[in-house]
Design a protein around this nucleic acid. Structure first.
Length: 285
DNA sequence: TTCCAGGACCGGG
DNA sequence: CCCGGTCATGGA
């Protein structure tokens, strides 16, 4: 990876397998937009950034190399060799998904934001998830700049009640958000401990929160704790598993089931007609 | 109008 | 342990 300060920007190049658009619109994060000039605007880790990707460079606008190294290099998981991981996937279906969406990386997001975001995601659709999270940040997050607000801290949300979140329009999920905030703020849930736990232990810990089940826990561990073998099964992945992998994911994904899941999820959810790829899915939920 | 969305909780069997 | 109903909201 080459890193260069060019004026007020940081330009990087020679990073295999890094497509910004595929990373930020793959359903693992909810606070990115694409501007009319093709630039990606995102808010994460209490900072906002604009990124331009062209054939030669990836340009992080108006930041220092220190900021890039401390925040975005980690966030985009740039020190992990994805070519190596993906080349081990010897499975026709996964290979198709990898080819179609090459450049997706598993983001290292803030654990609390990830937990809260995927609590909101349950029985919900992605556009609406983004709307709820946006409102939550605008209502209770610290201002960063312009119209950008940081994700609100658990301590901030812990002191609220349901009435304070009526305008969030999160429905039945509001009480789950509050429980997660309170248990995180009062130390019942400790991210530092979860970091060093096994996936099974960590999931059990997260499931102490109301509204956190297997799927939300797996998403949190994969996208917020860097545990790449965590395997979230949502309605899409469930259908994929039933049709392609009734006996489980192929052995070549061992250790990186979450990475394989990310590509499969993105590949199939963007298909208009699932029947084309999952002909038996009609009668199978 | 009905169905569905990156699910989880709860009660009954 | 497993199953179905239920939970808010809004777009298709």
């Amino acid at each position: 990876m080459q890193i260069k300060q060019i004026g007020a920007d940081v330009a990087i190049k020679n990073i295999p397998c890094f497509n910004v658009e595929n990373c930020v619109f793959s359903g693992q994060t909810f606070r990115w937009t694409k501007k009319s000039d093709g630039t990606f605007h995102g808010i994460a880790m209490d900072k906002s950034v604009d990124i331009e990707q062209n054939s030669e460079n990836i340009i992080f606008k108006n930041i220092s190399i220190d900021d890039f190294n401390i925040v975005w290099r980690t966030y985009f998981d740039l020190d992990t060799d994805y070519e190596k991981i993906l080349s081990c996937f010897n499975d026709e279906t996964i290979k198709k998904a990898v080819t179609a969406y090459y450049g997706i990386r598993i983001l290292n997001q803030d654990p609390w934001e990830t937990l809260c975001s995927f609590i909101i995601s349950q029985n919900n659709n992605i556009p609406r998830i983004k709307g709820i999270i946006s409102r939550l940040c605008n209502m209770y997050g610290e201002k960063i700049s312009g119209n950008d607000y940081a994700f609100p801290k658990p301590e901030k949300l812990a002191e609220l009640n349901k009435a304070d979140l009526i305008d969030l329009r999160a429905g039945f999920r509001t009480k789950y958000i509050l429980d997660a905030a309170r248990k995180t703020a009062n130390g019942e849930i400790q991210p530092e401990k979860i970091h060093i736990m096994s996936i099974e232990e960590a999931a059990k810990e997260l499931k102490k929160i109301k509204g956190v089940g297997d799927k939300v826990a797996a998403c949190t561990l994969l996208y917020g704790y860097g545990k790449k073998d965590a395997f979230p099964v949502d309605v899409w992945v469930k259908r994929i598993m039933q049709y392609y992998y009734p006996d489980g994911l192929p052995k070549c994904t061992e250790g990186y089931k979450g990475v394989a899941q990310m590509y499969l999820f993105e590949y199939f959810r963007n298909k208009k007609t699932l029947e084309e790829y999952l002909p038996q899915s009609k009668n199978k939920n």
